[in-house]
């Protein structure tokens, strides 16, 4: 194969010509803006004065690192990520194991189960704004039937729990469908051997099924974790990050600082800090998921 490739002059250039449009596009839309963000981050810039920035050195970084809101939002994001991903993982795997057994109308049920994955997270959040409304919402109305007065956004804890459960309702199907597909791709021999040896179904799940689907589990966890970490849409349309900053995620914090308060210099400094935090995680992700490169 390599011999054939080498015989054709220009092969070396062709491969670069093919990626060139993508590279130019990415440089213009992402790499150049990243460098521009460094420039913004050492200046005092608002949207009105972005043509006349005032150089302030490291002031913006000092402000961000010393900002209680930044660290609160980061902490909230991490709590939210851990809570949603672990619940979705447990429920998703349990559902996938259930659907692995014999069930009537299985493909019909599966096609209904994946529908939430097609709904825009912002619209999914809006749906729950309607359904959780204390007066007209269906969920508080159901609680009233049971004689319980339930107002989801009245306290911090009920708000947090509601937000986590909304994420779980939308994204458990994500874990489910990945694990479900992985289960159906498993070889049958290890299971036959285990049955012959008289293993219980709990033992089979623990010692055969779970180890065999580990690659799929890793992919599901990493994609869910990164998406939960950058969450904006759902929470923004439901609480706007409030009351106060109590449900503010990192993305919401930077959005408010930059686009509602117009502090572009501070916003840029915080994106650069977030960039390094995320890049650390992304590098780990890539090493684990796409080991060896190229999918």
């Amino acid at each position: 194969m390599d011999n054939i490739l080498d015989r054709f002059l220009g092969e070396k250039y062709v491969k670069w010509i093919l990626v060139l449009p993508a590279l130019i596009f990415l440089v213009a839309m992402t790499i150049f803006p990243t460098f521009f963000a460094y420039y913004l981050s050492v200046n005092r810039i608002t949207i009105e004065t972005f043509r006349k920035p005032i150089f302030v050195g490291a002031e913006n970084y000092v402000n961000i690192v010393g900002s209680r809101e930044m660290w609160y939002s980061l902490g909230f994001t991490i709590i939210y990520t851990l809570a949603t991903v672990s619940l979705e993982l447990i429920l998703g795997v349990a559902l996938a194991l259930l659907f692995y057994s014999r069930i009537h109308f299985k493909s019909f049920l599966v096609s209904l189960l994946v529908v939430p994955l097609g709904v825009a997270p912002a619209l999914y959040g809006l749906m729950f704004r309607l359904m959780l409304d204390p007066i007209t919402g269906v969920v508080p109305a159901l609680f009233r039937l049971l004689g319980i007065k339930f107002s989801p956004f009245a306290s911090y804890w009920t708000t947090l729990i509601s937000l986590v459960l909304i994420d779980v309702l939308q994204w458990t199907p994500f874990v489910f469908i990945i694990i479900y597909a992985a289960l159906h791709a498993l070889p049958i021999e290890p299971f036959e051997a285990a049955l012959i040896d008289g293993a219980s179904s709990a033992q089979i799940v623990r010692y055969i099924t779970l180890p065999l689907i580990k690659p799929a589990l890793v992919v599901a966890i990493l994609f869910r974790a990164m998406d939960a970490f950058k969450i904006f849409d759902t929470i923004y349309v439901i609480t706007g990050g409030g009351p106060g900053i109590s449900t503010s995620t990192v993305s919401i914090y930077i959005y408010r600082l930059t686009f509602l308060l117009g502090r572009f210099g501070l916003g840029a400094a915080s994106t650069i800090i977030l960039f390094y935090i995320s890049m650390f995680v992304v590098t780990l992700v890539f090493k684990m998921v796409y080991r060896g490169g190229g999918g």
């Binding site: 992402t30 803006p33 913004l40 930077i254 572009f264 994106t271 995320s278």
Partner: peptide, 14 residues
């Protein structure tokens, strides 16, 4: 995988 807000800030000025 990166949060898109990272790029939104500088891109808005551009």
């Amino acid at each position: 995988l990166l949060p898109p807000i990272i790029f939104a800030v500088p891109l808005y000025i551009i």
